[in-house]
Structures are given as C-alpha cells and as structure tokens.
Design a binder for these strands. Structure first.
Lengths: 550, 550
DNA sequence: CTGTTGGCGTCAAGCCGACAA
DNA sequence: TTGTCGGCTTGACGCCAACAG
C-alpha cells in the first residue's frame, strides 16, 4: 500500500507528484493530485497542523456503511466521550486499497482541550481546498469500453487536453502511452487516432487494464497529467459496487466499540489516535475544520422552513447544488448522543429525484440562501466554449440560462452598472499563489447559484417552500435599504424572513484583512449594495464581522 | 456471504449438507462438512451450549495476524478485563469470505461467572471433534494444474473415491461433473479418463474455476461427496498468500481496542459478544473448551526440560506430531496480561526444520509424553492399503515401522499376550453414535506416538533430551511394579523421572464411567499393566482420578 | 462526436498423447 | 502413477471501419 504524507508536499504550489527522495523505503509517495482526483471534487482534507472537530458518531456511520449494516442500538456508549472532540490534526497520509484502488485517508488526531472561539478564527480554512489537478479528465465507461470486443473511446477534448499531442503526419497518428496508477504501477496503452469519422482510441493494453482492475460499465476512469507531463490514471467505481466488507476479522459490534474506545482513550490521555476516512464510502465527513464547524454553529441561525442548498457530486464528477428546506431539527440519536450537532437537521429536497439524498444533514453541510447576492463572474470571454469534463457544468448552464452577465464594466441585463472595485479587489485577493482560477470557479458557482435561487420561483412540492414564494420574486430581488435598517438596530442584520436564514452576526473581533479570501474581481452596486455585498460575501465565507449600522 | 448455523445440523450423524427448509431467506445453509474440510483436520469447534474459555490475548493475536502487524505495546489494557473469560458458547455460524473463500466461524459468547472445577467435568469435550467428511480428497495444485495449457490431473485413488464411477465402456470414459462451493455456486467440469497411461483429468471448465478463484500453484483444491452423492469443492490457499487486510475501515489500534472493549463490556454486563475465529489465519485457537483448559491447567504438571509432542497439519492436509522440549515458562506479556496461561510455555523443537513452528505454546496445545503406554490399534487387516490423502499418514508409517502389532488375541512381537478386556471395553465405549472410526484413528495416533517415543532413542540435539535417553529403552519400556509403589505412598504416582513429566494426579472425584471415552478395543497386560494402562489412558484424556495404591 | 456493430485475422487457450520421473 | 512438454485445433480476443444517434 502506497502512502503519501500530506506534510511533505506542503511547500510550494502544485507539487504532489514530485518524486520524493527515497527517505523512507517501503513508503513511496502517492500522488496527491491523483488521489484527490479519484476522491472527487467535494473531498477537502483539513491541513495538517490545524484543529478539527472529530465526530465519533459520524465515524461510526462510516464503519456501518462500509459493512453495509446499520449501527446497532445496543452498542454501549462511553459516558465520558462527548459527541465531538476538538483535535489537532497531527498527520494525514493518503492511501489506496491494494485490491480495489479505493482511496482513503489515514488521519492521526490528538485531542486538545477546547479553547475559546477566537482561536478558531486563528486557523481559518483558507488552505482547505481540493487539490484537483487541472489537467485531467474522467470518463464513465460504456459497455463498449469494457467489452472484450474493442478498446476505449476517448472523448476528443479529453484526449487533446491531457494526452501528449499526436503526430498527425503519421497515418494513422498513434503513440505509446504510459500511465501510472495510485500504486505506482505503470500501464501501457496504444493511443491511436483513426476511424471514420476520426476519433481517439486506446487499443492495445486497454483490456489488460480493464480485467486487472475488474472494471465494469459504469465505473469511471480518469487520466491526469502532472506538471512534468507524466500521465497518471485512476479509477472511481460505481457506488453500487461497494465491496462487501470482509467482516472475517472483527465483528461489527467490536468495530463500533473500537471506534468509541479508541477515541475515548485518546481523549482521556490526550494521546494520538488514528482514524481512516473513506471519502467515497462515508455518508458524511466526520473530521471538520474547527473554523468551519464553529462558524456554522455559532453564526448560523437556522429554523424549520429555512431554505438552503447543498453541494453534491454528479455522475460525471462535476458538482451541482440541490435545493431543500429544513423540515425539522433535533438530535439524530437523543439517547446516546444528546446535544450533538451531527446531522441535526431534517431536510426535504425540492427535486423528486431526491430519493437517494440524505434526509438529515449537519449545519456545516448546507449553504444558507441569502440575497441579494451579486458577484459578477469572470467575463464570459474568459471561459472557453463548453468545458467538457469540467467540474462545474451546472455553473455553466446557469450562466447560460441567465442571459444576465456581460462584459467588464458595463450595464447588465437589468440595467445595473457593474464596475470594478479596486480597493476590495486588492485586499481581498488571496495571498497564496496557485489555483486562483479554481477558486474563482468556486465562487462563480456560488454567485450563479444564489442568483438562480432568487430569480426562479420555487417549484417545490414541499409546503415549506410556499413561505418563500409568497413574496413576488421581483420584490424579493431588491429589497429597499429600509428593510435592512429596521432590524439592524440591535446589532443584528435580519434578512427578510422570506429569504430564509437569519443573518446572525457574531460579536467577535473583525477579521484581519489578509485572512479573508474572496474572488479577485468583485463588481458592486454603489453604497447599499456594497454594504450588503460585503456582509453576504463574508457571510458565505463563514466569517464573523461587526456590522456598523448604516 | 452464506452462513450455516451449527445448531441446526446438530441432530443425527453426518448431516450438514441437508438442504435446510427456507426458514430464513438470505441465510442459506453452508455445508458444514465442506467447511471443516477447508478448515483442516486440526480445527475443532466447541459445541454450541458448552462452556469455553476465551482469551482476549489470543484474539488480539489473530487480529494482528490478519493485518500482518504486530500488536503495539501502547494499546491500553482494561484493568478489569481478565486474561481469560469463561463463557457460554451461545452460537456458532460458519462463514466463507465471498472474495477468497477463506473459512471462518462466527461465535457468540456470553460471559458466565466461573464455577468450581467440578462443573468443568460435567461438560466433557466428547463432542469436540472435527467433522471431516469421510469421502473427500485434497490435492495441492501443481504448475501444470494451474497453467492455461491444460486441465487438472486427478490422483487415481482420489477420483475413484469421491467421483461417480465412470462408464468404462465408453471410449474414452467421460462424464460431466457438477460441484458446489461454499457459496453454493455450482461449477461444471468435464471428467475424462484418457492418456497413455490412462489417468483422470478435469478439462473443460477447470480453467474457468482456476481463474475465478484466482488459484495458483501451491494452493489446494478439495472435493467431497456428501451422503446424497452430491459433489462439493473447496479451496485452501497457500499460507504465504494471506490477503493483506484492508485496513481502510479501522485502524489497527481501534481494532485491538475494540476486541478488548467488546469483551470487557460483555463481561461487565454479562451480555453477548461476537467474535470471528479464522482458523487458517489465527496463530492459535483462542476459544478453548473449559474442560480442555482446566484439565491442562489443573492436572498437567510441567517443568522446564519436559518433553512433549504437538500436532501440526502437513502440506497434504494430514496431521503429524513434532517433538519438542519445554525450555521456559512464564507470561508472554507480564505487564498487560500477568498470570495468563496464554502461550506460557517456551519451547524448542527437535527437528531442524522447526523454523516456522511457534516458540511459545499453551499448556493445552501439547501432549505430554508418558509411558509405558500400550494400546493396541485396530487389527491391521482393518486398514486399507495406503490411505492416500488420508489425515494421519504419520500414524500409518509409524505402525509400519513397528512390526509390532498383530491380529486379535495373539502374542505380539515382544511375546506379550494381548487380549480383549470386555469390561473396560463396554463401559468405556462412547455412547454417542457417529464417527467412531475417526475417534479410533485419533487414539491410534496417540498410541503409536507414545510407543514411538518409547522405542526410539532420542536423536534430538537439545541437551534436555539427554535426560530421557540416559535410561536404556529396554529398561524404560517395562518398569517393575515396585518403582511405582515407591512413590505412590503419598497419593501421587511418580513415573520414573527419566520419562519426563511428573504424573500428577488430581484429588477430584472419580469420573462417572459414561463420561470417559477410550478406544473401543483395548488389549492389556495382566494386573500391573492394567492398572498403569488405566492411569495412562485417563491421563491422556486429561481426566483426574484417585489412584488406590496397588 | 461517440456508442455500437459486423467483419475478420491472429494468437493463446486448451485438448491430446508422448515421455519420463 | 502423474507432472510436464510438444503438437495441433479452434474460438475468443481484439483491430478495423461502417453506421447511426
């Protein structure tokens, strides 16, 4: 089993695949970018050295999921083990199952006494980002791809993006490809461009790979190219194909008790303990950055009927947001885990296809709906045609639907003047180099999503959503300032109730400017819009702020 | 994963493969005989409802072995958890890993307060026997067997014993065979008798099986035929091919703690807990019948230098005994498991090939060497030529070497009169039906082994063995009665010191006759031999007895 | 642009007896 | 008695373009 210690490649941007000098034999470096590509775009690992909140309850759920068995109610609890432990994330190593290539992360945690909230803001979740490689593609295998009858048909754009360019002077153009998997095993493929019409194919070597990895139609294969031009490939199996946990070692009960006992012992002695996080098998993350947790808990006022959105991964390895309504609040397991924040929200989903989505989520899983929320995206010209295989197709389609955005410094479709704000731009620009483009994409998604919510009359069948739709959308879009002033007199900024969550602002000290990260280009309406904008922006970043009454 | 509840087929002899009525869907019956055939001849599961001793320490060793990792010393112990728990064996289900066909048993244990020793004798280990099927064979695969070049060559006797007879009128004789594996999956093979010289082969269908099970040369395949003539087949993988435990679920530490915490909680609350026993992966059994345990602990006086023998499984699925000497005694882990009897004996082995054999064993693992020990085996005529693939080839060879045995009621090679003893025969005969033949084999092995030990001058390089060989073997075989009388005056029967172990007899009440199980035919020397014989026989059965001075 | 299918050449899977240990 | 090998046959693998959605 190959490992990659996340500590090592933490210096410099986009390292990860650099061949480590052989400091430790037996532990060769596992490609971090490839790992994250296999894990998917939603998997964000907290940085080593940061403080996290560990939920034994969630850990237990992962164990249950991996054994495809419910948590039995008769499992004893540890009276002194709280439902959450604040820990120092001492170490993270990335692994891949030797049999299935399933990715998982080993985390070493050291319980620490909880400190006051201010500490939480000292370690903001700026570094918490998915290290998705830029040059990659992911394709779900078709029946033809996996049959013994032929090879692998590569989408044109994908091949052109990540494979070395073919010499089209040859007839037919072809080359030998070598790619390494997570175990550093090398696979050889013949890459040829032929057929009528022309297409990219992997022929010789492909079937060996398929049978060795036991791939089936529905599984996905992904190729990445690192900064040295080396190809990597990984697999993402279809969910249904979850391996039945070999329970021939420990009984389900012992495993559950073991999780609790290990955490309990570590908490009692302030000693290290080790957990495995299996991102594609665990129902939810159970190691959360302290900052993310506290901001959700302390600064997010939720109530039944509140509308929210939440990110999910699509089949094509992109992300999209689903809308829902909070239908209830309360402990998931009031007897064994009272006063836990773990999945304390009961939710309903707008779309009828929501059968598979969770009925319960945690506070930090959701994005509250706020408005007005106006952040201009990158100019349209900046984006390529249609980024096939990209990770945010929803954003694209939304941006298409809303013929709303136009070029820089112009009036938009609703006649508002958009302009650049150099001051905000400069101090809010992230200091760290590397991947600003991806971050932009992230916030563009937020923008478009919020906008979509505003512009669309809810079509939900959930009666709760009628609360929102009772206000005409035209009125909802632009509340006059006095609505804001009404409630801001006692230091809180109440959004109109129809918009959903109360915007509860904390009384903690303002953030240092350099700790705040926002898109590099922000377009604001004058005055009122700017103030609200700032609040909302910071709000999305889960940052507390004093609001001085306007 | 298919299950077989050992409770169900517990009535009637050699059931096991009867199609259970579909009481519980999803849990189809797993063939018990096939399971035991795969587990090997040494695996004896205590009967459901009996009392057993559970060793958390041994359980922990199995967990460590399955993860190929040593038990870390930093694992905390539970102060209140004793090194052994007396439990009621509430349930046993047989399983087979869906991926590897690895057999394992799930046991449900209920800790019970330890009672006095007498109770132990109330549940003798008579029922503790391996349910090895009689009609079976096991072959280790050769390179030719597993290559893609051809089929599977079946040893002649094996094919004739378990396969349906071929119609030799056909040219060539051939038939279609169907056999089910532990998962009840059916496999089809073409069985043909051809070649020059003629031989039995499996051709069509064989390579499918090999690739599906991922068999390699060195792995073993076994076929059994149940009482309805249905064929079963199982596999036994070579040891080296231990699967790397997918540790992507729980950390090693959590697993170890889980084992201890589950046992600790069950002991504290007298509630059920579940363990998995993986006979081919666990270094030692860690669920021992109470009777076996207590007889070893209470009635076995061991000392450094003592000679013993111990059963091992050979490559060919037969058993053989290796000789060794106790070189030390003491706790394996004095800090965390003080006063544990778990593997408290340090041992050395006579043969130089003993590198793989354990350096530490438990008291109940060994058979002490005693003498004189004269039990006649079955008449030679009873046994077939050479039982290839049988389970006790060593016994056979020993019996061959000692041209010592002859027919019934005759003088043996040393001129002693052997005769039948009806009285002993009748009250010592086991009451339970089923497999008396196998039990006879078992004791025949003991006889032959003891005899061999007596007759052979030790060739051990271990200096300890010189103690024994200092007495001429002729003298050792027949000690005059006065030697016995010398030391029996204070209620103990001392064997001559040169023989090794002291024969410490317990002071517990004599056994009820019907609880004692000995070979059905016993030939005794008159008077003195009869008394010694009785002592030694009972001694081998780990039964305590009052000895009335002769 | 790409999933599926028919055509077809090639090579390894797999059946056979020879031979020898 | 049975493990391995060379000879030989055949059918599945796998490369190709056609075609269609």
């Amino acid at each position: 089993m190959y490992l990659c210690n996340e500590r090592l490649p933490s210096v410099g941007p986009s390292v990860g695949s650099m061949a480590q000098p052989a400091e430790k034999v037996e532990k060769r470096s596992l490609n971090s970018e490839l790992w994250h590509a296999c894990a998917g775009p939603l998997v964000l690992l907290p940085p080593v050295g940061s403080r996290v909140v560990y939920f034994p309850q969630g850990h237990t759920e992962q164990v249950a999921a991996s054994m495809q068995k419910e948590v039995d109610a008769h499992i004893p609890n540890y009276p002194n083990l709280p439902s959450r432990l604040v820990c120092l994330l001492d170490n993270v190593t990335l692994h891949a199952d030797i049999e299935t290539d399933e990715v998982y992360a080993q985390m070493t945690l050291i319980p620490v006494p909880p400190t006051n909230e201010k500490d939480a803001h000292m370690s903001p979740d700026i570094e918490m980002r998915s290290r998705q490689p830029t040059e990659y593609f992911c394709k779900t295998l078709t029946a033809s791809d996996t049959s013994t009858h032929g090879g692998f048909s590569i989408p044109r754009r994908a091949a052109e993006k990540v494979f070395p360019p073919l010499d089209y002077a040859q007839i037919p153009p072809a080359q030998e490809l070598k790619a390494r998997d997570l175990h550093d095993q090398e696979w050889h493929f013949r890459h040829i461009y032929r057929g009528q019409p022309r297409r990219h194919l992997l022929t010789t070597g492909w079937s060996v790979f398929v049978s060795a990895k036991r791939l089936q139609a529905g599984d996905a294969v992904l190729f990445t190219r690192d900064n040295k031009g080396q190809l990597q490939l990984g697999i993402r199996r279809q969910n249904r194909q979850q391996r039945v946990m070999p329970s021939s070692v420990l009984s389900s009960d012992s495993m559950h008790i073991g999780v609790l006992a290990a955490a309990n012992y570590a908490a009692a002695t302030s000693s290290r303990f080790t957990i495995f996080y299996n991102p594609r098998q665990s129902p939810s993350e159970f190691v959360i950055p302290v900052a993310k947790y506290q901001k959700a808990i302390c600064h997010l006022q939720v109530s039944v009927g509140m509308r929210f959105r939440m990110v999910f991964e699509t089949e094509e390895s992109s992300v999209r947001r689903y809308m829902g309504t909070i239908t209830g609040m309360g402990d998931l397991d009031p007897i064994r885990w009272p006063n836990s924040h773990w999945r304390s929200l009961k939710v309903g989903w707008d779309e009828s296809t929501a059968g598979e989505r969770k009925k319960r989520v945690s506070l930090w899983d959701i994005e509250p709906l706020t408005f007005p929320y106006v952040l201009c995206p990158q100019p349209l010209a900046f984006r390529a045609k249609r980024p096939r295989g990209g990770r945010d197709e929803e954003t694209d389609s939304m941006l298409k639907k809303s013929s709303f955005w136009s070029g820089e410094n112009s009036t938009d479709a609703l006649g508002r003047l958009t302009f650049r704000t150099p001051s905000l731009d400069s101090w809010m620009r992230p200091k760290q180099p590397g991947l600003p483009m991806q971050e932009n994409e992230h916030y563009r998604a937020l923008e478009a999503a919020a906008l979509e919510e505003i512009r669309t009359t809810s079509t939900a069948k959930n009666p709760m959503s009628r609360v929102q739709s009772s206000i005409p959308s035209s009125q909802m879009q632009f509340q006059p300032p006095h609505v804001l002033r009404q409630s801001s007199q006692h230091g809180e900024l109440h959004m109109p109730e129809a918009s959903g969550p109360l915007l509860q602002l904390s009384s903690s000290r303002p953030q240092s400017p350099f700790e705040v990260k926002v898109p590099s280009k922000i377009y604001l309406e004058p005055l009122f819009m700017e103030a609200v904008q700032l609040c909302v922006t910071l709000r999305y970043l889960h940052l507390g702020i004093h609001l001085i009454e306007i």
